[in-house]
Every structure is written in structure tokens, then in C-alpha cells.
Design a binder for these strands. Structure first.
Length: 259
DNA sequence: ATGCCGATTAGTAATCGA
């Protein structure tokens, strides 16, 4: 089972690049972030024609997440539990049925800048809620994967220029500590465990020639529960997508599970 | 690198992202 995450930065803007990547990479399941669309306007027929079942959790203008699955997908939950007053569409989960069942949680973690401030408070509160949700789901001891745009640079080696991020919400100690708490629950950063060392990025800013200078950061992650990590076969970052026509500022990251 | 670019909504300027 090939499972991928891709922050597409607008479904309308990526309506050609996304199907092109899907046909080339052929993932079974894809979690999308920043669809920037309400559910009614998501072009689901484009992806149904490619064999995908489509579940969205959108909102007007920004944010918005979705899951595309070639495998049967059931038990969809929209919105991160734990705060009924949270209006932002940043979480969607579902169970997909391959050779084994896998619970897939697609997430778009808040950016949090500027820090300190209310946006950073929201980020940290959101991460605490996510940790609570992870505890709940992990109690079942089933294959479980939390994937998406975490907006967290876990370590200095995950940035080309870590010194430029020291006061940024993506790299502040509290953000990284919250990420580590997820790891301490027993979640494994699937890409990192298979690809040690610097130079692996999933985001390059549109500005200042970041792509041409390879000034990137690794902020899109797939975190596996112990039962999912036991099924981990391979993982990768589809870096070449960033050099394609009308690219997003993020690229797809994926794992293959023996499931 | 201080949103320098890019997407969206609203309607040519503002907001948001990382």
C-alpha cells in the first residue's frame, strides 16, 4: 500500500500538476492539504476518473484537507476532535482496506507565525489536541499513520539554513518539543528513519530563488504507529515535482507499507 | 530574507501562507 502526503497549495491551481503526479506515482492513498476549496467546489470527478474515492473537509479561501483512495475507504472523521469552537479545516481521517486495514489521519498543522502571539498559541494548542487524538487512536494497537504538513522542522539537519529559522514558529523549541512528544508516544518519522542525514527537504519557498538555491526545509511528515512501522517497506520524497510546470511550494512525500 | 512569490476572494487591493 503506497500512502502519500502532498500540500498542493490550491486545488484549482494544481488541477493539471496533481493528476499528472498521480498517474506517474500511482499512490493508493493520498492526503492533500491546502485544497483552498469548499467541499461542493472540489473537482472530485477528475480524481474519480483516475480510480480514486474522494473525501474532503474543505473551507472557503484557505486551509482544507482531503483523502483520495483507490482502496475502499470508510469511517471518515472530519475535524480534529477536542475543540468544537475550532472552525479551521485541518484534519480528516479514514480507514482504508488493503491486505490489511490502515487508519489514515491527514493533517494540516497550523503555521503559528508570528511567535509569540495568538497564532502560535493556536499552533501549540492544536498540537496538544493532536497528541490526545493520537493517544486515543493508538490504544487500539492497529496500523495507524498521521501524515501531512506538520509545519515543524524537527531538527537542524531538516533545514538548509537552520540559523535562519531560530525565531520561527516552525523551529522554535516548543514546536519541536511538541513534535518529539508525538515520537515519544511511539510514532516513527518514516522518512527520517530510512534516510538519515541532511539535505532532504519537502518545501522550497516561492521567493528568493529558494528552489534554485536548494534552500529547503523538511516539514511534511508521515508518522507511523508501531503496528504501521512494522509494515514499513520504503519511503521517499518526490523532489522532482518542485521543478515541474506550475508547482506547489511543497512536494509529495510517501511510504510503502506491506498492507 | 523583512512574504521578495503565489493563490484566493473580491472586484485592483487585502489576506494568507512558511
Amino acid at each position: 500500500m503506497k500512502i502519500a502526503t502532498f500540500n498542493i497549495n490550491g486545488i484549482k491551481a494544481r488541477i493539471e500538476a496533481l493528476p499528472e503526479w498521480l498517474e506517474q506515482a500511482r499512490p493508493d492513498v493520498v492526503c492533500l492539504q491546502e485544497i483552498k476549496s469548499v467541499d461542493e467546489n472540489f473537482p472530485r470527478e477528475v480524481f474519480e476518473a483516475l480510480g480514486y474515492q474522494v473525501e474532503t473537509h474543505g473551507q472557503k479561501g484557505f486551509n482544507g484537507v482531503a483523502i483520495l483512495s483507490k482502496l475502499p475507504m470508510t469511517d471518515v472523521v472530519r475535524g480534529l476532535p477536542g475543540d468544537d469552537s475550532d472552525e479551521q479545516a485541518r484534519w480528516i481521517e479514514a480507514t482504508v482496506q488493503g491486505a490489511r486495514k490502515v487508519r489514515v489521519c491527514g493533517l494540516y498543522l497550523p503555521n503559528g507565525n508570528p511567535a509569540p502571539g495568538p497564532k502560535y498559541d493556536y499552533k501549540l494548542a492544536w498540537m496538544a489536541r493532536m497528541e490526545a487524538r493520537a493517544r486515543t487512536l493508538m490504544a487500539d494497537e492497529l496500523p495507524l499513520i498521521f501524515l501531512g504538513d506538520y509545519n515543524v522542522i524537527p531538527e537542524a539537519q531538516d533545514a538548509a539554513k537552520p540559523e535562519a529559522w531560530t525565531t520561527d514558529a516552525l523551529f522554535l523549541p516548543q514546536s519541536r518539543a511538541a513534535f518529539r512528544r508525538l515520537e515519544h508516544l511511539g510514532l516513527t518519522d518514516a522518512f527520517r528513519i530510512q534516510h538519515p542525514g541532511p539535505g532532504h527537504y519537502s518545501f522550497w519557498d516561492f521567493q528568493a530563488g529558494a528552489w534554485e538555491r536548494n534552500n529547503g526545509i523538511r516539514i511534511d511528515h508521515l508518522m507511523c504507529s508501531p503496528q504501521a512501522a512494522d509494515l514499513l517497506m520504503s519511503s521517499g520524497i518526490d523532489k522532482a515535482v518542485r521543478g515541474g510546470v506550475k508547482p506547489s511550494d511543497h512536494v509529495p512525500v510517501w511510504v510503502e507499507l506491506d498492507a
